[in-house]
């Protein structure tokens, strides 16, 4: 049983009004107006920001142009400074790589046996650097490798083998470790033909010592 069967409503749906105080036909224009104002404000803010950014960019551009010469000069100076620092560094490397061999050489005279006559003391040149790789930057002041190994060759005359052995044993002492290592090689030991003219029979020898590594480092 429904009262809808009795409800003969003469009011059309389109005529029904809402009791709510908030009405769309009032609120819609108000909201639209506020939306338009908001959009306008937003656009104005954006436009102002754009103008400000443009002006700032122009100022920066002019400033960059004005400072570009000074900037280039500063850059070139910085490059020079960097280059000189590198040179200084290389020189430091060389200073650190200097061998102090004066004292061992002076000591050498003291330990030299009487039956030995030195004919030559020489430092063999270091082996040649390998050829640079293509595109490898070569510093004009720096060696190709940081470590350099040389050989010290002692050549002389003697009457017999024993003084030479004694010399070699003396050179093995700690006083000569700045000059040579214990790595050695008897390069030659033969009869000296030039000395036989005087009627005495002499023997010529050559002993090659490996020197301590020379390091180009700080």
């Amino acid at each position: 049983m429904k009262s809808a069967s009795f409800h003969l409503n003469l009011l059309k749906d389109t005529e029904r009004l809402s009791s709510s105080p908030v009405r769309l036909r009032v609120m819609l224009p108000v909201v639209a107006l506020f939306a338009c104002i908001g959009m306008g404000l937003w656009w104005a803010i954006l436009f102002t920001q754009l103008l400000m950014v443009r002006a700032e960019a122009q100022d920066i551009d002019e400033d960059v142009k004005a400072k570009s010469k000074a900037h280039a000069e500063a850059i070139s100076r910085q490059d020079r400074v960097r280059e000189m620092r590198q040179q200084l560094e290389q020189l430091t490397y060389y200073r650190n790589g200097v061998r102090a061999i004066g004292k061992p050489l002076a000591k050498l005279a003291e330990i030299m046996p009487l039956k030995v006559q030195l004919t030559d003391l020489s430092f063999a040149p270091p082996p040649l650097d390998p050829p640079p790789k293509p595109g490898q930057k070569i510093s004009p002041f720096a060696p190709m490798t940081n470590v350099e190994t040389q050989r010290f060759v002692i050549a002389g005359r003697t009457t017999k083998e024993t003084p030479v052995v004694a010399l070699m044993e003396s050179l093995d002492s700690a006083e000569f470790e700045r000059l040579i290592t214990r790595e050695k090689r008897v390069k030659s030991f033969r009869q000296d033909a030039t000395a036989e003219k005087g009627g005495r029979r002499l023997l010529a020898f050559e002993v090659e010592y490996t020197m301590p590594e020379r390091r180009f480092a700080k």
Partner: peptide, 24 residues
Amino acid sequence: ALWLGRLLPEGRRPTAASIQLAES
């Protein structure tokens, strides 16, 4: 019907939801 439908104004309680004849 139009007069009765507009009698109670919009936005105030109550508004007309139905117009009936007294007999109905």
